[in-house]
């Protein structure tokens, strides 16, 4: 009786167990005057989550097809604007109870005499729950399998000292057709001394001046990148269009006071849809 019951329990569907953490904000800006910041974590799950915070150095780059990825550098040299070694998190490790919040305080201690400018790091917040059995069992041989699920959220941290400026230069605007989409690529070269945080917009305008397709995407330009964007072309009539492309230094997901103002840049290119 008890053996039968045990086997039934092993075979029964497992309840959903949410493991993870909510991170806010998703970008941290710290000023040289205050040298401190915070990140708030929330455990939405039904079990306690063990969380750890670490800092690493990295910045977004684009691959050959224009996808963004994070390039991390384990030991950035002195030419890199790294703030990794200056950051302390309090607490660095913690256990967050189910549906509870935890504020992580960040203290930045830069070396004396650093030059005005912007310094970067990434905060990696790792959350792991209890071990979860992921499979059934071989009932005759007593084999059970399980997988521990971990989630990791990596967000940018920007440290600013003194006067910093940013800007953007757009070049090599080009398009290509891929399946049912118009793929747009452009080279974005950062100007000034700080990362450019902005929004890219594009509009495909027909001969009568009517917009027939658009895209909008937040963009972070730390070093030069060549990202891709896309506009769906399903249902578009064949013919010539004008692609209007612009980048503004505003982000709907970042507070206005955290973004650096820069002139809007625009470009356009004629596109033929067949």
């Amino acid at each position: 009786m008890s053996r039968t019951l045990t086997l039934m329990l092993l075979a029964a569907p497992l309840p959903a167990v949410a493991q993870g953490v909510l991170v806010a904000p998703h970008a941290v800006f710290i000023d040289h005057r205050t040298r401190s910041g915070w990140v708030q974590l929330y455990n939405p799950g039904s079990e306690a989550t063990e969380v750890s915070i670490e800092a690493l150095f990295g910045y977004p780059i684009t691959d050959s097809i224009g996808h963004l990825e994070l390039r991390t550098i384990e030991k950035p040299d002195s030419t890199m604007p790294s703030a990794v070694g200056w950051i302390q998190a309090f607490p660095r490790r913690t256990v967050i109870a189910p549906q509870a919040r935890q504020t992580i305080r960040l203290l930045v201690t830069p070396p004396a005499g650093i030059a005005d400018g912007e310094y970067w790091a990434r905060l990696a917040i790792t959350a792991k729950g209890s071990a979860v059995p992921v499979s059934g069992a071989d009932t005759s041989q007593g084999i059970t399998v399980g997988l521990n699920l971990e989630v990791r959220t990596i967000i940018p941290m920007v440290y600013r000292k003194g006067s910093v400026t940013t800007g953007l230069k757009v070049s090599s605007l080009r398009t290509s057709m891929e399946a049912d989409s118009l793929v747009i690529r452009a080279r974005l070269a950062r100007q000034g001394s700080a990362a450019y945080l902005g929004t890219v917009r594009g509009a495909l305008v027909d001969a009568t001046g009517v917009s027939r397709g658009t895209f909008e995407s937040p963009i972070s330009v730390y070093y030069d990148i060549d990202p891709r964007f896309a506009i769906g072309t399903t249902g578009l009539a064949s013919g010539r269009y004008l692609l209007r492309f612009s980048v503004t230094s505003e982000r709907s997901d970042i507070a206005v006071e955290q973004t650096l103002k820069a002139a809007t840049v625009r470009d356009s290119i004629e596109v033929r849809i067949r």
């Binding site: 075979a11 959903a16 493991q19 998703h26 979860v132 992921v134 499979s135 989630v151």
Partner: peptide
């Protein structure tokens, strides 16, 4: 404030193993 989250909802369940 703007937030992101990633949460593990369900495990990979292979069922009975033979």
């Amino acid at each position: 404030v703007a937030q992101v989250s990633v949460t593990g909802i369900r495990d990979l369940a292979f069922g009975f193993l033979t």
